[in-house]
Amino acid sequence: MAFSKKIYTTALLFVILAAASSVFSQGVDSVTDPPSQRGIPIDLNTGVSFEVSPHTGLMGSSGIFGLRLSMNYSSFNLELAGEQVLGKTANLYPISVNAVLNLATRGRLIPYGAVGVGLWLTVPTNTIGDETVSTIGLNFGGGARYYISRSFGFRVEGKQYITSVSSDRELKSELLFFQEVSVGVTFMFR
């Protein structure tokens, strides 16, 4: 009895919400994207523009979240990127400064190549006694941005990360390679 009451209450709630969505939305006008943003491609030659690009993806088999802040000027783009890589025993926080070469400066699709350097912070999550380890890392790769308006677009990127980890016990260092694939969106400001 109690179970059916819960089901009826839930169903009633959804019916009310569904009805509300129809009734209240009747008065909103039909408007699409602003005319100033229809059919006009991006032109990076018209001055400096800034972009904020949240993204997600995979580094190896670990999920990532990140944010890129960048400044465009024609073919050149300077970028500051921070990420969180969620590993099983540790989280990795690569922070890097990247130089990006835009392979096109006009149009909706802008492919690019990138190279950068940064600091990697490895923070153990469930290992007692381990401390945060910081290393210097390099990265290079490429990707593309596709703009659906002058202020918004999508972004895909593939990168190779290289870092060196030294072991105090064995008195030697080891090069580590990681591949990253990411997708995200980008917001452009002028």
């Binding site: 059916s4 089901i7 019916v15 569904a18 969505s21 129809s22 909103v28 039909s30 408007v31």
Partner: peptide, 29 residues
């Protein structure tokens, strides 16, 4: 019996949803 009632409720909700959706015509601005 209980399952029958639940199915009727779910079907009713879905029909209402579709019906109400077809009666609206506005968009986000």
């Amino acid at each position: 019996m209980k399952r029958g009632r639940i199915s009727v409720v779910i079907a009713g909700v879905l029909m209402l949803w579709v019906f109400l959706g077809s009666s609206a015509s506005a968009q986000f601005r």
